[in-house]
Design a protein around this nucleic acid. Structure first.
Lengths: 221, 221, 221, 221
DNA sequence: AATGAATGAGGGTTCATTCAT
DNA sequence: CATGAATGAACCCTCATTCAT
């Protein structure tokens, strides 16, 4: 790559990473750059139509780059899923910490996070489903998803336990509620995936609120 | 085909058709046979690893057979999704008709149908997710799924409307409940997909019951 | 084939054969029917895009019919070429016999035959070139074409010999003229093939006349 | 690639490139190498029996190479025709420039070029006919051939115009002669194609001379 | 570290041929 | 004789991977 084309290349990437990625970007940066490109490709074309070449092109790099940094496509995809899961977890954790102070507020905030454009959007939702679609035949994917799921469930169940204790609710168990809430949010992603046009975020949000109110009338009124 | 391979072939087909079908299978039967084989392959290996050759082998037929009956792989997959969706709808309709007599019983029966081994099993669930994984990039898939979804939603909402009227429930709208229930059942499929071992069908069932009871305490007690 | 579809089929073929082809058309009739269909297909789609299935469809018959009557595609094509060559020869012979009375008139008539719409048209010309295109790799084609060519040449040379004797022309040999005339007519077919729109039949015809006049001024004035 | 197969590979390529070209061949060189291989294959096996695999093997390269450099077989063929046409045009132009000084000499030189072994040989002639055989069904081929034809015609007509003016010939028009000469040379190629053994280059040459002499007796005596 | 030409296995598809009906 | 479902080899093309530069 000569000096001129390097500059072109550099500019081309400005949009993607918001800061100058050097030719000798550190290993970690390059990996992330490729993961981000992978996400874009999967979101745009689906898992089945995402080739290593597409990813490289999306990243503005050369053919061989993926195998250089990830050894195999399989690896890239696994790392991509891990990245997506981590990102989700980070936002989840942050919401959990910042919302409050009570368990009820935290719970509601977490539910709403799942409906927030930062999480449920035309980029991320398809990626989740793309990976879920392969879960059955890829044990590694399953494991990563499972971990995320358990984490989510555990925290939801803790919050519910607190809320139930606070409200002395009977007739509902914390685990039941956690299961239902977890399922519901994932299910709403599906509705959004299937009919992104007609999907009404507010309606979904109020459906979630209604549900919480039904479970815990004293907390959500 | 020599004698040995004929017998192999015959046996291989026993499962699918329960009797030796040779060149006489009607066009419709052959198509169904191939669709069933496709479902098995997708469930076993995932969408991305299902080749036309695999499907043909699974059906005990030759390479060219798929293109002979479906013209293209795309077509086969679309027809497979349609088949799966129709099958679901049939069971759904049957449950709706046979359960009863009241709306509450019907609603509960429909929710439980989604958790029933006939619907939620290691074969069908992965197939649904395999197709959902491609929804973003395949408008046809989206449409078929959308239709199924709307149908489901509509009936659930009707039932909820009746129940709400019967019980004079306030604080919940029929559409809210329908959305939440639809989302929840789909979400439970995901939990089942991700952790088929630890997934507890009874727990899921009771979570669903708890939810219904929370919404409509007078009906589910 | 039931009675209704038979009638449909029968009608469909009326145009092609101008008389009722029975279901039990004699072997010879069927063969011709298929050959005619082959010619149409080659003229329309080219040799490379003409499949046995296309031919059968064009003839309004079933897949297997070609192999039934011709054993192989190769055979069908060879027979088609033979048919085309025979047809040409028949018209050539007829022209030779009917034109006259002198050699000069006969020669001119033969040249003009090659430019006549009955011979040089959008159906036949491409077929000739389609076969010539394969001549190098198909000895059988070569032989058939060669035979036709020699026949043509021989007769042309005879006529020229007569004309030269009549006119006591010097400076030209019969074989030279025959070679040139034969080449020219075939070459005009190429011009017609390549630019059927801008090709001017009259201009070609007068070019041929000019040529004859240059060779034999006393005969063509 | 082990040592033995490397040597094999090296030898195989000697003919084509006269020195070991490995992965370094420039894009343009590779394309030409493949085009040359294509020409050989078509000349040897005919258009219909020339597969991408054959071409790659002929070039001593791998299957995927053609699509890497030409994107599709269609493209390769079109470029091959273009190459052949360009090559012809170059030789034509060179002959036109170098022959002379008069128009008559130039004309004769051009006619003789078409009969020269450098142009009319067992490699090139079949290739021309292979492409002409597909002209009807491939508009792109038609266009390329048409362009070549018009170029040829135009120059021939110009030369004839000059000659006619010089010799004050009557009874012939420049366009008539150009058409006839063009047709004749192409037609001679056909004779050569059909009977390469018995085709007599000298006889063809003298037939051409006779023709010129008949048209323009004052110039060719 | 990065490139991109090259590979070759595997995919979807076409189609001449076979054969039970 | 005729059909058309079925076969399976061969095609073109894609793409993960390798490797000389």
């Amino acid at each position: 790559m000569n000096e001129y084309s390097f500059i072109v290349w550099q500019n081309r990437n400005m949009g993607a990473t918001a800061k100058s990625v050097r030719r000798t970007a550190s290993r970690k940066q390059r990996r992330q750059q490729l993961i981000v490109a992978t996400i874009k490709c999967i979101a745009r074309n689906g898992m089945g139509s995402t080739s290593i070449g597409d990813v490289a092109k999306e990243a503005g790099l050369s053919q061989g780059i993926v195998n250089l940094h990830f050894e195999s496509k399989d690896n890239l995809l696994t790392e991509t899923l891990r990245y997506v899961a981590d990102e989700y977890k980070t936002q989840f954790r942050k919401t959990l910490d910042e919302a409050g102070p009570g368990a009820a507020e935290k719970l509601q905030a977490l539910i709403e996070l799942d409906l927030h454009p930062a999480i449920m959007n035309r980029q991320k939702t398809p990626v989740w489903f793309a990976f879920w679609g392969e879960v059955k035949s890829r044990p590694t994917y399953r494991k990563i998803c499972d971990t995320r799921d358990r984490y989510y469930d555990e925290i939801l169940e803790d919050l519910c336990t607190t809320i139930i204790a606070e409200g002395k609710y009977r007739n509902v168990s914390a685990s039941s509620v956690a299961i239902a809430l977890n399922a519901m949010t994932n299910g709403l992603w599906l509705s959004y995936l299937i009919s992104p046009r007609s999907f009404d975020r507010d309606q979904a949000s109020s459906a979630a609120s209604d549900l919480l109110r039904s479970y815990f009338p004293k907390h959500y009124s």
